[in-house]
Computed example of a mutant assay.
Amino acid sequence: MPDFQPAVIIPATPSLQLYRFAFIDGRLLLDEEGRLAPILAAGLDLADAHYLGRLGEHDCWACQMTEVPAGLQATALRAAMMKLPAELAALAGRAAQVLEWDRSHRFCGTCATPTQLKVGERARLCPACGQLAYPRLSPAMMALVVRGRELLLARSPHFPPGVYSALAGFVEPGESVEECVAREVAEEVGLRINRPRYFGSQSWPFPHSLMLAFVADWESGDIVPQPEEIEDARWFTPETLPTMPPSLSIAGRLIRAVVAELEAR
């Protein structure tokens, strides 16, 4: 698919067709075959919609709806993202986060005055005290620990049965991402690591995370799972891998990339 150009200001010449990311109670509206296709812009009411930018020749909008139109079905966001092409899945996540930010910042957190959308910027402005509220982002690290030809995978109690993934956790105030990587690995499985290497990042709308993925080397320690956080954690070789996260997620891409590197040794 073509590249996406993010924007807040509506272009002077809107596209004839657009992508509308419409939600009902957090669920994305898809057609009966699980697709999201461009629709004609003519006649659509976009007064309360949020402009996201342009994907190729199509403007992209996010909006809330109260009823499911004929021919569409409301699909849980995670399931919808698994069905959509990568570019549309990423935009669905963006749309969901913009709508949730708009819903949860209708009143100023400082003085409780109703806020207004700020012209030309993705922000809500308090007309009384001037407080600006931008979409919330929560940085979170992901760490895949490697020991020789083994990699450490773990599962939380809320994971689907049999699925293992890399360790992850949110960055705390005053903490660098590298410090977070070391702390979370120590807290969750009791290991010391060294040489953390950045792999990549991904916006993840559950609820509003910016995932920053790292590979790190095991330094010392035995696996001691953190109670209530880690149901199981163990070392796996490329030949003994469990069920992994889908490649849509950066966890899935991280694990598969490291496995390919280990297999090439």
Rank of each mutant, 00 (worst) to 15 (best):
Asp3Lys: 09
Pro6Asp: 09
Ala7Val: 11
Val8Asn: 04
Ile9Gln: 14
Ile10Asn: 00
Pro11Ser: 09
Leu16Phe: 00
Leu18His: 14
Leu18Ser: 11
Leu18Lys: 10
Tyr19His: 12
Phe23Leu: 08
Gly26Val: 01
Gly26Tyr: 05
Arg27Pro: 07
Leu29Lys: 06
Leu30Tyr: 08
Asp31Arg: 02
Asp31Glu: 03
Glu32Val: 06
Gly34Leu: 03
Gly34Ile: 00
Gly34Met: 11
Leu36Ala: 00
Pro38Gln: 11
Pro38His: 04
Pro38Gly: 02
Ile39Val: 13
Leu40Glu: 10
Ala42Gly: 09
Gly43Asn: 09
Asp48Gly: 12
Ala49Val: 01
Ala49Asp: 08
Leu55Tyr: 12
Glu57Pro: 15
His58Ala: 11
Asp59Tyr: 12
Cys60Ser: 15
Ala62Asp: 03
Cys63Tyr: 04
Gln64Leu: 15
Thr66Arg: 13
Glu67Asn: 11
Pro69Glu: 10
Gly71Asp: 10
Gly71Ile: 02
Leu72Tyr: 15
Gln73Pro: 12
Thr75Lys: 00
Thr75Gln: 13
Ala76Phe: 05
Arg78Glu: 13
Ala79Lys: 08
Ala80Thr: 06
Lys83Leu: 15
Ala89Asp: 15
Gly93Pro: 04
Gly93Asp: 01
Arg94Ile: 11
Ala96Phe: 06
Val98Arg: 14
Val98Met: 15
Val98Ile: 15
Val98Glu: 14
Leu99Lys: 01
Glu100Asn: 07
Asp102Val: 06
Arg103Leu: 14
His105Leu: 11
Ala112Tyr: 12
Thr113Pro: 13
Arg124Ile: 04
Arg124Ala: 07
Pro127Ser: 02
Cys129Lys: 02
Cys129Asn: 10
Leu132Ser: 03
Tyr134Ala: 09
Arg136Lys: 15
Leu137Pro: 00
Ala140Ser: 12
Ala140Met: 10
Met142Gln: 07
Val145Leu: 07
Arg147Asp: 12
Gly148Cys: 04
Arg149Asn: 14
Arg149Val: 01
Leu151Gly: 08
Leu151Arg: 05
Leu153Tyr: 06
Ala154Trp: 03
Ala154Gly: 05
Arg155Gln: 10
Ser156Lys: 11
Ala166Ser: 14
Gly169Glu: 10
Phe170Tyr: 05
Ser176Tyr: 01
Val177Leu: 15
Cys180Leu: 05
Arg183Gly: 07
Glu184Pro: 06
Glu184Asp: 02
Val185His: 07
Asn194Cys: 14
Arg195Ile: 00
Gly200Val: 02
Trp204Asp: 11
Pro207Glu: 08
His208Phe: 13
Leu210Trp: 02
Met211Lys: 02
Ala213Arg: 04
Asp217Val: 02
Gly221Gln: 06
Gly221Trp: 06
Glu228Arg: 02
Ile230Phe: 05
Ile230Lys: 04
Trp235His: 07
Phe236Met: 09
Thr240Met: 00
Pro242Val: 06
Pro242Asp: 00
Pro242Met: 03
Met244Lys: 05
Met244Asp: 00
Ser247Arg: 05
Ile250Val: 13
Val258Asp: 11
Val259Leu: 03
Ala260Asn: 12
Ala264Glu: 14
Arg265Asn: 13
